[in-house]
Structure formats: C-alpha cells, structure tokens
Design a protein around this nucleic acid. Structure first.
Lengths: 237, 237
DNA sequence: AAGAAGTTTGGACCGCCGGTCCAACTCTAA
DNA sequence: TTAGAGTTGGACCGGCGGTCCAAACTTCTT
C-alpha cells in the first residue's frame, strides 16, 4: 500500500455533535453488545463512524472511558434506590439495585472491583454510608461496617459478573455448571466438595446475594447493639 | 533487517530443565517484580533466557499462566492455615492468611476476583466450607454463608490490592490518600463525604478487613442461633 | 467582506502485545 | 547407526492503545 494518501474530501465537519457524553453513550452500547474484550478504540470509532483522533480529543484514554461508563450506570442506580424510610430496607434495595445493574451490564462488575478510587465506587460508598448513619451505627464502627458491606457487594458483583460473562443462555449455564461440578467431584472425593458442587448449580445467584447482605446486616446490628464493650479496636488516645 | 537468519548454533538443548513448574515459578517472580502489567510473555522469555515457543510448549496461554501462579500462592496458604481447634479462630486465621498473601502479591487479588471457577478460588471455597461445617452452620444456610464469606474476602482483597498497586511506599500512600480525600471533600460538602474522606487515610486496612470478618461471623452465629424460623429460602418440595 | 485564530476531525504511524508455526537441534530406543 | 519423538528459539501475523498532524470547518475581529 505504502501511503497513497488520497486526499479526497477529508475531514468535513460532522453535522451531529460528537461530545464526550455521546462517546460514553456509545461506549456503553459497545460494552453491552460485545463485552469488555470487545471494547477497543477501533470498534468505538467504527460504531461512531469517526476517526481515532476524535475520540482521544474528548477522552483521555481507555481507562477514563471505562470509568466514565461505569460511573454513568452506577450514578443512575444510586440516584434511584435509597428513598426507603427503613434504613435496613433501603440498604437491601440499594444492594439489589447494584446487583441487577451488574447483571444487566457485567462489565461494570469487573470495572468496579478493579479500581477502588473511581467515582462510581465513591457513589456507592456515599449511599451505603448515609444509610448506615441512619441505621444508627456509631462512629468508630461506622467505617468498618461500611467497608465490610461495600467490599461484599463489590466482591459478589465481580464474581457473579465473571460467572455470567462465561455463558450466555440459561441452558448453557446449567450444562456448564454441571460439567464443572462433576469435574470437581471427580477430582476430590471430600464430602465438602460434593456438597459445594451440588450447591453450585442449585442455588439462585440473586437470592444468595441477598442472603449475604442479610448476614452482614445482622452482624452489624448485633455488633452495634452489643455496644462499645466489644474488642476496643480504636483505643482512646 | 529483513530476515538475515544467521543459523549460528541455534537451539542447543538447555542443560537446566525447563519444566512447567519452573515457568510458573518464573512467572511469580516477574509478577512480584514488575506487577500484573509487567507480565508479558516476552518478559518471561527474557527472564528465562529462552524463546517464546518453549513457553507455549509447556503452557496453554497467558490466562493459564496467571491461574497457575495464583493457585500456587493460594495453595500454600490454604495448606498452612486452618488447623485451629476453634472454627471461628480458624476462619479468622484463614481469612487473614489470604489477606496477607494478597498484600504480598497484589496481582493474586485481581486474578482471584476475575475468574470464580479457577482452582485457586476452589481451594478457598473448600477451606471456608469445611470450617463453616465445623462451626455447625445447618445445611440450607451453609451455601449462603460460604458464598457471603468467600465473596467478602475476595472483594476486599481485590480492593486492597488495587489500592496497594497504585502506590508503593507508605509515605506516597499517605500523601496520595490525603490529596484524594481533599478532592472528595471539596467536590461534595455532604458530611458523610467528609467522614468517609477522613476515614480513608486513618484506618488500617488489615484491621478493617478483620473487623469485616468479625461482622460476618457475628451475623452467621446470630442467624443460625435464630434457627430455621427465618425466611424460608428453600421450601420443602 | 475577508482574513486570522481557534477548534474539530480522520487517518497514518509507532511500538508493543499474545499467539502460531516450523526448521533446527538433542535425546532415546531399536 | 538411524528413525522417531521430544524440545527449543525466533520469524511472523493480526491487532491493540496511543501520538501526531494537516485538512476542514467555525467563530471572532476588523
């Protein structure tokens, strides 16, 4: 080919504006359609029918792009959920809303657990924190409780998202898990393994996730009810 | 350059054996030294002073390599921890051992939360499961409890690992977190944010992680003590 | 009206990556 | 001695993220 540079009508300015918001919107479309691995700057340029310079003009790099896309999704979720009067119910609703959002957009799960200082995670911290405060968790225990809850939600989200990423249809999923369970069971005759394997495809992800939230909520309320007589984690200086 | 193919003494068979184990060992060395981004097959060939075909002869692909490296680390941890008589103490010790291993090898954290069906995660499930059984968690609640604990441990590990990956020295870390807290506080005057920001660099990761494990254990014992009268998750058919 | 200054656009180009392929080489067994 | 099996190293491929810059368009100034 060696650079034949046909300068036929290059660079006519587009009629439709190509803003950062439009680019992030397109990023979400590509991610939902092709998955995390399918998001390349080249695919994005094709989807927007533009050149690569244009995208880097509005966006710093791919990391910026992913963080903004995740923040967009999480922002919508945290804005909607959390208006319940009862703080425990509000926390459950918030956790479930995040779970469902990640179920719909698995790439959000991976993105959230990759980088803890991004705006999307910050939003989640803020929502969880305000509900914990309403729940009456006292000062010192507050950060521990919030950290436990956020880490559980993000960890579970990443796991379920990774699981969902592998197989698409429900039938495939079932078949895949049965094969996997059989492999495990064959590899290790320990009864624990047998039970783990059977639980692997009998459980419902969403209910199991909620059960985990309940365990942490129970732990938090029980710990705070027990008062400040617990193991003194932060000694008064 | 155009392929001048000097066939001077190519491919003399190496004296030191180059087994799969040796390759995984080298992988861990490269990961610890250069981080996850620094692990390239090319870097690995340089480290082993060999060619690329050799590596692909022993190993399927990069994913295989990472999974094997993580499994090696986790295997050592789960083999050591867990011999305590008291199941609660055993769970704490196990969680802490995993935390410390990930603190020493941050790439393990990212790897574990990326793919839930890999051998390393399976090992963790098995250890956690056996301790929960010793703790007397009844059948139906067992899978929920295990899932919650594993997800919390992996989620927290990934978060802390990602945080540790960004900055190396303690002084850098402190400065970085203070800057970040100031940014947040400036961006949002909500008192929740202020407190979150201050907690951000006042807490100790390890203690906070353990506090989360304690919250979980409290929740588990409280839930199981309450008996089967809880929300009937699995209805008798 | 016309040119100057600034903004937006698209694609050529760079270095690097993971993975494939195969000829050259060593080792073992008959 | 020699046929075959098991290793080894590097050329090669397509594709990636990111940089750079000239062309084209808009807006501002006079």
């Amino acid at each position: 080919m060696m650079d034949m540079t046909i300068p036929t009508s290059r660079n006519t300015r587009r009629s439709d504006a190509l803003s950062r918001d439009r680019i992030i919107e397109a990023t979400i479309e590509v991610l939902d359609a092709a998955g995390e691995a399918g998001l390349t700057v080249r695919a994005l340029t094709a989807h927007l029918s533009t050149g690569r310079g244009t995208i880097y003009h509005h966006v710093a790099n791919k990391e910026d792009l992913l963080a903004a896309a995740a923040d967009d999704i999480v922002g919508r979720v945290t804005a909607e959920a959390g208006d319940d009067e009862d703080p425990e119910r509000a926390i459950r609703a918030l956790a479930l809303a995040i779970f469902d959002a990640i179920d719909a957009h698995p790439w959000v799960g991976t993105q959230l657990s990759r980088e803890p200082r991004q705006p999307a995670v910050f939003r989640i911290w803020k929502s969880v924190g305000s509900q914990l405060q309403r729940l009456g968790v006292p000062g010192p225990a507050w950060a521990d409780a919030g950290s436990a809850l956020v880490n559980y939600v993000l960890g579970a989200a990443a796991q379920y998202a990774a699981g969902a990423r592998r197989v698409t249809s429900d039938a495939d999923r079932k078949a895949y898990l049965e094969t996997l369970a059989a492999q495990w069971a064959q590899h290790d005759p320990d009864p624990i393994v047998q039970e783990t394997a059977s639980q692997l495809y009998e459980h419902d992800d969403r209910e199991q996730f909620l059960a985990g939230v309940d365990i942490f909520l129970t732990g938090i309320t029980a710990t705070t009810a027990r008062g400040k007589a617990s193991r003194s984690r932060i000694a008064p200086s």
